[in-house]
């Protein structure tokens, strides 16, 4: 199926004084896709999300949203979302916050029903008439999402939407976003949680120091990284150590009484498992120490080296 493009960015560059926030960013997001945006602090995620929301203009480069060249005030046509946390007014109730937002968007007829609907959708109908000043971070996140949904956007831009949410709340948000994408809307979501992105996004873009270091399917990302560390737990750790050392291409990274950590290709690990089974040793656990996506993220953004040096 040929999806029209929601976002097409070419060579986006943005500076704040001497600081280069974005340095020649290219980005393509088709309609109907949940696209993840990850990167370490200061990588340029917020600036890029701000450009998508029409909050600023790039110094150089082209940005098209739904085929229309974006400018500061027009980029927001059909676009909703929040960056750097949802904007909510603590002296107003949840319902008043959303009703005001709906009124700003020109909605009069059926406004109350629409507000009630999105409040129920994010699970805040019970506290609709409470002042937002007393809301937890997770409740504020959900109310911010409700505000964005109220606009019925074709492109939803969310900065850390699952921040502060409990597992149930996170699942709820994931279901809402997946539902939007299934209906044809595009969702660009930034997150620091790799497990969130794996379960939610079909494609991700990784930023580091203002540049794109990877952009593509999540499945492809795992292949970008080299050998991973695996934790191996068996009923006979001494036999496990011997089996690892006997297989070519595997390196023993750590050896503890209850587990060993090995690094090497998946095929070599298969050989270890086979050897252990033949020796009558049960394999109780064989898992990556970090997920493939997280490992790729650490490798591509050079954060992994920093971690190892610590």
């Amino acid at each position: 199926m040929d999806h029209p493009r929601a976002i097409r960015a070419r060579g986006l560059t943005k500076r704040y004084g001497d600081v280069v926030a974005l340095d020649g960013i290219d980005l393509d997001v088709p309609a109907g896709q949940v696209h993840g945006l990850v990167g370490p602090n200061g990588a340029g995620k917020t600036t890029l999300l701000g450009l998508l929301l029409g909050l600023t203009r790039a110094d150089h480069g082209d940005l098209e949203i739904f085929g229309t060249r974006a400018s500061r005030t027009l980029a927001a046509a059909g676009v909703a979302g929040f960056v750097d946390g949802p904007g909510l007014y603590p002296t107003l109730t949840a319902r008043q916050n959303l009703a005001s937002l709906a009124a700003l968007r020109g909605r009069d007829e059926g406004r109350a029903a629409a507000v009630d609907a999105v409040l129920a959708q994010v699970g805040l109908d019970d506290v609709a008439d409470d002042r937002v000043g007393g809301f937890s971070l997770g409740m504020r996140q959900r109310l911010g999402l409700a505000g964005a949904l109220l606009a019925r956007p074709r492109l939803l831009v969310l900065d850390e939407p699952a921040n502060g949410l409990d597992p149930a709340g996170r699942n709820q948000v994931h279901r809402i976003l997946a539902g939007l994408a299934a209906e044809g809307a595009s969702v660009v979501v930034s997150s620091h949680r790799m497990d969130d992105l794996v379960s939610l996004c079909s494609e991700v873009t990784i930023l580091a120091t203002g540049r794109v270091v990877f952009s593509g399917p999540v499945t492809k990302l795992a292949t970008e990284v080299g050998d991973l560390d695996y934790r191996l737990v068996t009923t006979d750790q001494a036999a496990a150590r011997r089996a690892v050392l006997d297989v070519a291409g595997l390196r023993l990274r750590e050896s503890a009484p209850d587990a060993v950590v090995v690094r090497g290709p998946v095929e070599a690990l298969d050989a270890v498992v086979g050897a252990l089974v033949r020796a009558g040793v049960a394999v109780r656990e064989l898992t990556p120490v970090v997920s493939p996506l997280e490992a790729a993220f650490l490798a591509l953004t050079d954060a992994g080296d920093d971690e190892e040096h610590r």
């Binding site: 059909g78 968007r105 020109g106 909605r107 029903a113 629409a114 959708q121 019925r152 809402i176």
Partner: peptide
């Protein structure tokens, strides 16, 4: 969570113009 996507869909899409003064 009692609401559904259909509830929100019942409302037409909002105009993409700047909000009125």
């Amino acid at each position: 969570m009692t609401g559904t996507m259909a509830d929100a869909e019942a409302a037409p899409a909002y105009a993409a113009r700047p909000a009125s003064m």
